[in-house]
């Protein structure tokens, strides 16, 4: 019987809410994520796609919000370290301070894989990071900002204050 070479269990400790028996994901699933965005855009339009991103952030990723609420900025940083460790091809530095967690994405694993395989990338692809991240961050009293995209970007998680400037979607690059 065939079985993949894999560890029998997930890492002993992880900051991820859902764990697999494999240490990293299968990159071809980025094809399906990109295709899902395209399908929703085609059938329901851009506002529905943004709603989907907000809904998944507030529902499926609710355990992440809870973790960030309980653990603060360190929990945010630990989550992203574990997250990108499990995303094949990611090159990301997680910079943690008392007031902010910053992700310096030198190579986005999704954009890289889609591009390597000649897939047509949904132009709004990089916006999902803002909408999903914001929906996760908000219940934890945080807010997210994304700058750049299309393969490299900076993502910030900061405390939600009235002074925080709103995300400008023009700061997020069109993916191609």
């Amino acid at each position: 019987m065939k079985s993949a070479a894999m560890s029998e269990a997930a890492p002993a400790t992880t900051s991820l809410p859902y764990t697999d028996t494999k240490p990293a994901g299968h990159a071809d699933f980025y094809f399906a994520i990109n295709a899902t965005f395209r399908f929703i855009l085609r059938h329901r339009g851009e506002e529905a796609l943004r709603s989907c991103w907000r809904d998944i952030g507030g529902s499926y990723y609710r355990p992440v919000s809870k973790q960030w609420t309980e653990q603060g900025m360190h929990g945010v940083a630990e989550y992203w370290r574990a997250f990108f460790k499990a995303e094949p091809g990611a090159e990301v530095e997680v910079v943690e301070s008392a007031d902010e967690v910053r992700l310096e994405v030198a190579r986005c694993p999704a954009i890289h894989h889609l591009r390597t395989h000649g897939r047509e990338i949904v132009p709004q692809f990089c916006q999902h990071c803002y909408f999903v991240n914001e929906a996760i961050a908000s219940p934890a009293g945080l807010t997210a900002r994304v700058c750049g995209g299309n393969g490299t970007c900076t993502q910030r998680f900061i405390k939600r204050t009235v002074e925080a400037e709103a995300q400008n979607l023009e700061d997020i690059a069109t993916a191609s």
Binding site: D20, A24, H26, T36, R44
Partner: peptide, 30 residues
């Protein structure tokens, strides 16, 4: 970011989101 590590989890979540948006036919079309 939506990642590939837990893909099956958010993939399954998406089926129900689509069903609520457009019923069984939208899920089939997806």
């Amino acid at each position: 970011m939506i990642g590939c590590y837990d893909f099956c989890g958010h993939y399954e979540w998406t089926f129900e989101w689509l069903r609520q948006q457009g019923g069984h036919e939208l899920v089939r079309a997806y």
